[in-house]
Design a protein around this nucleic acid. Structure first.
Ligand SMILES: [Zn+2]
Ligand SMILES: [Zn+2]
Ligand SMILES: [Zn+2]
Ligand SMILES: [Zn+2]
Lengths: 132, 132
DNA sequence: AACATTATGTAATAATATAACATTTATAAG
DNA sequence: CTTATAAATGTTATATTATTACATAATGTT
C-alpha cells in the first residue's frame, strides 16, 4: 500500500492545476494562474512543487523545466521516471512500460555505482506530427 | 567516419575549458573563466554551448544545468546519452554501454511514437561515497 | 500544554537563458 | 577574384527560472 499524503492548501491548489492541464506547466505559468487564489510569490509555488515531486504526485520534465502530474499511479515516489516528448507539438506523456522500468531498475555497469533513481526522456515525433 | 568540425575561436575556448574540467561546468562559471580571453557576454557562451551540444562534443546534464565533454568518442551527434550522477559528491560520468544504448535505441511502445533521441540520467552513490 | 515538524507569507536577489540588432568572418559558387 | 550565402561574433537589454533570508502560523506528537 502506498502512503497517503494529506496535501496542504497550497499543495492542493497547485496539484489541481497541474493535474487538470493537458500539457506540462512551468512554474511561473502556474504562479500566474493561481494568483487569484492568493498565491502571490514564486517561492510559494516552488515549495509546493518540491513537495509534490518528492511524494511522486508530479514529475519535473527536466529538459523543459516543466511539471506534469504522475500518470502512473504506481510510481508514488518519483525515483523511476520515463517520458516521451514530441519535439514538434511538445506533447509529453509518461511511459509506463514494465519491461523498460525493470531493465533500468536493474541496470548496473562496471562503475560499481549503486543507482536508486533514474530519469529518462525520449524525443521524437508523435503519431500526429509524424503524419504531417 | 565522423564528420570533423572546425571549431570557431569561441567554440574552441569554451570546449577546451569544459574538456579540461573534471566536473560538469555551468554556463556562468564558464563565462567567468573565459572573460580574460575576451568573451564577455552570456550569449557568447550560450551560442558556443549550443553548437557544441549540436555536434556532440559536449552534452548538457539537464538535471544540473551543466555541461560535460563527451567521454564517448562514438556519440558525435548527441542523440543518445546516458549519465550516472552521484547525489553526494555530484560526480558525473557518461555511461558507455552498448547493451543499454541498443536497448534504448530500439525501444518502442504502443504509443506509435518514433523516437530519434533520448537522454537518461541515473542517480545514486558512487563507489567512494557509498563506502563512507 | 509543550515541543517538534511542516507549511506559509513576503521581500529581495541569484542563477539561467534568450531577444534584437549591427557587424564580421568563413565557405561556396560562379 | 568576386559575389552570394551561411555561420559566427559583439553588445545591450531583458526574460525566465529558482533560491536566500527571515518572520509567522498551522499541524502533529508526546
Ligand atoms: Zn509517474
Ligand atoms: Zn507532436
Ligand atoms: Zn557522449
Ligand atoms: Zn560520490
Amino acid at each position: 500500500m502506498q502512503k497517503q499524503y494529506n496535501l496542504s492548501k497550497n499543495q492542493k491548489i497547485i496539484f489541481d492545476i497541474i493535474d487538470k492541464s493537458s500539457e506540462p506547466l512551468k512554474a511561473y505559468s502556474i504562479l500566474f494562474n493561481v494568483q487569484k487564489k492568493g498565491i502571490k510569490a514564486p517561492l510559494q509555488v516552488y515549495r509546493a512543487l518540491d513537495k509534490l515531486v518528492e511524494i511522486g504526485k508530479i514529475h519535473k520534465i527536466e529538459s523543459r523545466n516543466a511539471f506534469i502530474a504522475c500518470q502512473n499511479s504506481s510510481c508514488q515516489i518519483s525515483k523511476a521516471t520515463a517520458f516521451s516528448i514530441c519535439e514538434s507539438c511538445e506533447n509529453v506523456s509518461e511511459i509506463s512500460n514494465s519491461k523498460l522500468s525493470k531493465y533500468l531498475a536493474n541496470f548496473a555497469d562496471e562503475s560499481g555505482m549503486k543507482y536508486n533513481k533514474y530519469n529518462l526522456e525520449f524525443f521524437g515525433l508523435c503519431k500526429k506530427c509524424k503524419s504531417k
